[in-house]
Simulated assay, not measured.
Amino acid sequence: MKTTYIFILFIILAIAQISIPAQMIYHRETILKEGKAFKFKTEPIDPADPFKGKYIHLNYELNSFKTDSIIWKPEQDMYISISNDSLGFAKANTVHKQIPKQGDFVLAKVNWYNSNTKEVRFTFPFNEFYMEENKAYDAEIAHRDAQRDSLPNNTYAVVYIKEGQAVLNNVFINDIPIAEYVEQ
């Protein structure tokens, strides 16, 4: 009788250990298939984390918005209504404390609010792009060099957004995926 309970408990734990990661993967894949793609201009650095591995930390050019109607607190959730500008890059249209009823939007966190200039600074949750360890440093150097280039809009990240959830798909330099760019 006791072995039967242990076996049943083992089966339940095994199913839970498989279903939770499978659900997370399915959710991200759904966003990539059904979400809308936006290009965000980037400014990277390359940190290393012993638990996460090598990745490029991305700072986005779109990181603030002027608003005069709301006071924001640090670490507060905010929803940013976005669209594409004339060059095809993401731009903020409005910021909200509640989920917008229509249009494309993404969840972000408030960094700080300047009540004098009525500007709120924010951080997106898709700011880490993981790479093969041997390519991450070369990618950082290539991205930094591309930022110094006189060509505008040559470094960006493609992010898929669906119902406020976002998945970072890839980082590009001169319209070439960064992993391919560093191999050249």
Rank of each mutant, 00 (worst) to 15 (best):
T3V: 08
T4F: 10
T4N: 14
Y5L: 15
L9G: 12
L9I: 12
I12F: 06
I12M: 01
A16P: 07
Q17R: 15
P21N: 03
P21S: 03
A22V: 05
I25D: 00
I25R: 06
Y26A: 14
Y26C: 12
Y26L: 12
Y26S: 12
H27K: 13
L32V: 09
K33Q: 06
K33P: 12
E34I: 05
G35I: 11
G35E: 06
A37Y: 13
F38W: 03
F38A: 00
F38E: 04
E43G: 02
I45A: 10
P47S: 04
D49A: 07
D49K: 03
F51A: 09
F51E: 04
F51M: 13
K52C: 11
K52F: 07
K52H: 06
G53V: 04
Y55W: 10
I56W: 00
N59Q: 11
Y60P: 01
Y60I: 01
Y60A: 00
E61N: 11
L62M: 06
K66E: 10
T67D: 15
S69H: 13
I70W: 07
I70Y: 10
W72C: 03
K73H: 09
K73G: 12
P74I: 07
Q76M: 07
Q76A: 09
Q76C: 08
D77I: 12
Y79V: 00
I82D: 00
I82E: 01
N84V: 08
N84K: 05
D85F: 13
D85W: 10
S86I: 14
L87M: 15
L87A: 14
G88K: 09
H96N: 05
K97W: 07
Q98R: 13
Q98I: 15
K101E: 08
D104V: 08
D104T: 14
F105Y: 05
F105L: 02
V106F: 05
V110M: 11
N111Y: 10
W112E: 11
Y113K: 06
S115Y: 14
N116C: 09
N116M: 14
T117M: 07
T117A: 06
K118N: 09
R121T: 08
T123W: 02
F124E: 00
F126K: 00
E128V: 09
F129C: 01
M131P: 03
K135I: 07
A136R: 00
D138G: 05
D138N: 08
A139I: 01
E140K: 04
A142V: 01
R144A: 12
D145S: 14
A146T: 00
R148C: 11
R148N: 12
R148M: 15
R148A: 13
L151F: 11
N153G: 13
Y160M: 05
Y160H: 09
Y160S: 00
K162G: 04
K162C: 08
Q165M: 06
V167G: 06
N170D: 03
I173G: 01
I176S: 04
I178W: 01
Y181M: 09
E183R: 14
E183T: 10
